[in-house]
Simulated assay, not measured.
Amino acid sequence: MHGEYKVPGGKLVAVDLDVDTSSDPGVLTDVRISGDFFLEPDEALGVMDAALTGLTSSTSTGELARVVTEALDAAQQAGTLAGPVAMVGFDARAVAVAVRRALGLATTWDQHTFEVLRPGPLPPRTLAALDQVLTEELADGRRGPTLRFWDWDERAVFIGSFQSYRNEIDDDGVARHDVTVVRRISGGGAMFMEAGNCVTFSLVVPGSLVDGMSFEDSYAFLDSWVLGALAELGVEASFAGMNDVASPAGKIAGSAQKRLAGGAVLHHMTMAYDIDADKMLEVLRIGREKMSDKGTRSANKRVDPLRSQTGMARDDVVDAFARYFAGQYKTEESALRPEELERAEELVRTKFATPEWIHRVP
């Protein structure tokens, strides 16, 4: 069996192994690690191979990584290695993910076909409810992985699941600008969204696609295609922190995640296309603090990285992102099912539009 894992921003780790199936679970045999990483001393490679050999095929990612780490530490303390271990471009967890992929327990992009949804404009709270619905649909086996692009007509602000309403939202600004306040199911920060001022997508994937990855690694892994799409549009971008994408001119986008018990992962990103910063600062309290050191004082100030750096209409940018994703992975055009939309509208009535949910963190 063969498995590979490319560390985000790092190197490729490959694992070849056999499994002795005379017992249940099977036992790993003849484990061989390779890749374009850097490792010192050379003997450390054999230590890792030997440590993994004899483990069961059901060993978790965390346990695989622990065994590799402890074997290297023990070998170093026993003096069987020529010097301290240096793993450059990879780590024990990357080795563990490659093992899990070899065993078929962790999946890769090319093992999935993604349904691409572009349902057109929907109310903001319906958009948030669909995140929950489609993630639950995947967890229950009723739908495969999906990429859904958002469109909306109303002015809205989306706050993270754990943000304080009173700390984030200015009720006077909300009333003045007729803003719908939406609390989403994922964590992260607030997003001010007018029609056509952002590019937003939700990606729903099985947990096997990010099996063994830390949250930080999974953000970069699931957003790696976005950097490629931006590059094709002429935008130089890179990851900034755990969940942001930035260009030399400043932040472009932010991501958030929610993982359900059923094994499904919701990952979504909002990219600024052309945001009215003055209006945003009247609606979001936290925005004032974040923008206070940026000299944002002039009227009609805008945050417009995608519009100014691409020179493209917003719909053309969305089209380009959809084409790029389809060029990288297996996709098929799809649509929301009536029962999914009905379930989302029910959730709006019973959850997303209720004061109890909107103010769940006062």
Rank of each mutant, 00 (worst) to 15 (best):
D91R: 08
F114T: 13
R148D: 07
V85F: 03
E136V: 10
A128W: 09
G89A: 13
G89H: 14
V97Q: 13
G160N: 04
V99E: 03
R93M: 10
V157M: 12
D153L: 09
P84I: 02
P145W: 14
S161K: 08
D151S: 11
A92V: 13
G141I: 06
T107N: 10
L117G: 09
L147D: 08
V85H: 04
E137Y: 13
D131P: 01
A98V: 12
H112A: 07
T107L: 08
R125C: 00
W152I: 00
E136C: 02
T126I: 08
T113H: 06
D131T: 02
T113S: 02
T113Y: 00
V95M: 15
A92R: 12
L134Q: 09
R118E: 12
V97W: 09
A139F: 09
Q163I: 08
V116A: 15
P84L: 04
V88D: 15
L122W: 08
D91F: 12
F162S: 07
L127P: 01
D91W: 12
F162W: 07
T108A: 12
V85W: 14
D140F: 10
L138G: 01
R142P: 05
F114S: 06
L105C: 05
V95C: 15
R155G: 13
T135S: 03
V99Y: 10
R125L: 04
T107C: 04
V95D: 14
F90S: 04
D131E: 12
A156F: 02
Q111P: 01
E136P: 00
A94C: 15
A92T: 13
T108Y: 08
P121C: 01
L130G: 03
R118N: 08
G144H: 01
L134M: 11
D153R: 06
A129H: 13
D91K: 07
I159C: 07
S161R: 08
H112F: 09
S164I: 05
V133F: 00
T146E: 04
F162I: 03
A86H: 11
H112K: 11
R142I: 00
P124K: 03
P121K: 05
D153P: 01
P121Y: 01
E154V: 01
T146H: 07
V95Q: 15
T113C: 07
V97P: 14
F162A: 10
D131N: 04
Q132S: 06
E154K: 05
V116G: 12
L122H: 05
P121G: 00
R148E: 02
V157L: 05
V157R: 00
S164W: 14
